[in-house]
Design a protein around this nucleic acid. Structure first.
Length: 370
DNA sequence: AACGGAACCAACCGCTGTTCA
DNA sequence: GTGAACAGCGGTTGGTTCCGT
């Protein structure tokens, strides 16, 4: 025999609460405290289910609830937390004093989600959704005719928007770089950069698949990005001597760096468009790889690098608990790893959370909060 | 002013893990 | 040990408000 039913299943009022009902509920809880929701409605003189009373109290009547518009900081925090926790609204609410899970959930679905979609960020994975736009940006930035074969060869990169984004950022910075302008015709540099993008991406994806159980996937990502950034920098500066020097100074720091260094040997691309068939092959190889976000998850634990997002159906509280804030923040940052393009200097921000917050700040339309 | 669609959000629904008779 | 209810959570609904035509 189980418990007695909490309330009658019929004859109870549903729908919006009246001020009188609110008054009764608040008065009762002030006097007796919350809890014992089964008997509360009857004792408080309400013709409501206990569950309904609990919901009304926790979502609306609680005195510590902060009502009104979400601030810019709160919105940033929600996005940041969502990238780590997924649709764990109660967990997110626990970190936002005065806000309820229901309120945050509603706000996410009606405001943030749409805003992210509008700016091209997938609200589930927190990764860019429009790689082809990046591609367009890239070609426009090159300010030169990129042959169709090369473009076609790059198509598989649509699954790897991060690299394209990275390239765009670097190139946009490079456009205004006096060093680069002094180094030679810009078109020549970019002709080198395009095939390199493919190789670097393929190498990075391979690297990601071979992630070791000892190192966190997030760290691997970070290393890969850092290496990619360094290589980008080399290319932008187009100084082979400096490249070799740097290579000698940081031997075999990681596989990714080695792979990238091999890919950018100038001699490889000296003979005009010799590399195009090779590019096609590389692109084909790359197309067989899973996008970063889905490949890099270690099998011996529950760590999910997919921006730390786990769908309700696939996640478990244990898995969520294992995701400490530092590592998930690192994963998030890697996803949005970026360069200090304006100065052609690649910066590796130690404060991962801060970095991604910074990026989100850029993505959000601040004017909405003015 | 009237209308229709979009946006918003409080409340409900249904599921899951926990508690307890 | 069993099973029913509780408590909590995320998803969804539907009523209301807003806004453009």
């Amino acid at each position: 025999m189980g418990r007695a039913p909490c309330c009658e299943k019929s004859g109870l009022k549903k729908g919006p609460w009246t001020p009188e009902e609110d008054e009764k509920l608040v008065a009762y809880i002030k006097e007796h405290g919350q809890g014992n929701w089964r008997t509360l409605p009857k004792n408080a003189g309400l013709v409501r289910c206990g569950k309904s009373c609990r919901l009304r109290w926790t979502n609306y009547l609680r005195p510590d609830i902060k009502r009104g518009r979400f601030s810019f900081e709160e919105e940033e925090a929600i996005i940041q937390l969502h990238s780590m926790l997924g649709n764990k609204w109660s967990a997110i609410a626990a970190r936002l004093p005065g806000r309820t899970d229901n309120e945050i959930k509603n706000y996410w679905n009606t405001h943030i989600r749409k805003r992210l979609l509008r700016i091209g960020i997938d609200p589930v994975t927190h990764t860019p959704r429009w790689p082809r736009l990046d591609l367009l940006d890239l070609t426009s930035l090159l300010d030169t005719q990129v042959d169709l074969d090369t473009l076609r060869a790059m198509e598989p990169l649509a699954s790897y928007p991060d690299v394209l984004h990275l390239a765009c950022t670097v190139l946009s910075g490079a456009t205004s770089s006096p060093q680069l302008q002094a180094a030679g015709p810009y078109a020549e540099q970019t002709q080198l950069l395009l095939p390199w993008l493919l190789q670097a991406q393929a190498a990075t994806a391979t690297m990601a698949q071979q992630v070791t159980p000892l190192a966190s996937a997030a760290d691997q990502f970070l290393q890969a990005d850092t290496a990619a950034c360094q290589q980008m920098s080399y290319l932008v500066h187009a100084n082979p001597e400096a490249q070799q020097q740097q290579l000698a100074q940081q031997p075999q720091q990681d596989h990714m760096a080695a792979a990238c260094h091999g890919a950018v040997q100038p001699s490889v691309y000296d003979s005009q468009l010799d590399y195009v068939p090779a590019l096609m092959q590389m692109a084909s190889d790359a197309s067989n790889l899973q996008p970063w976000s889905s490949t890099v998850s270690t099998s011996n634990n529950n760590y999910n690098v997919n921006s730390g997002v786990s769908t309700p159906s696939s996640s478990s509280p244990a898995a969520a608990a294992q995701m400490n804030s530092a590592s998930t923040a690192a994963a998030t940052t890697t996803t949005y790893g970026r360069l200090n393009a304006s100065s052609d200097v690649i910066t590796a921000d130690d404060d991962a959370g801060l970095l991604s917050m910074h990026l989100y700040s850029e993505l959000l339309d601040v004017s909405d909060y003015m």
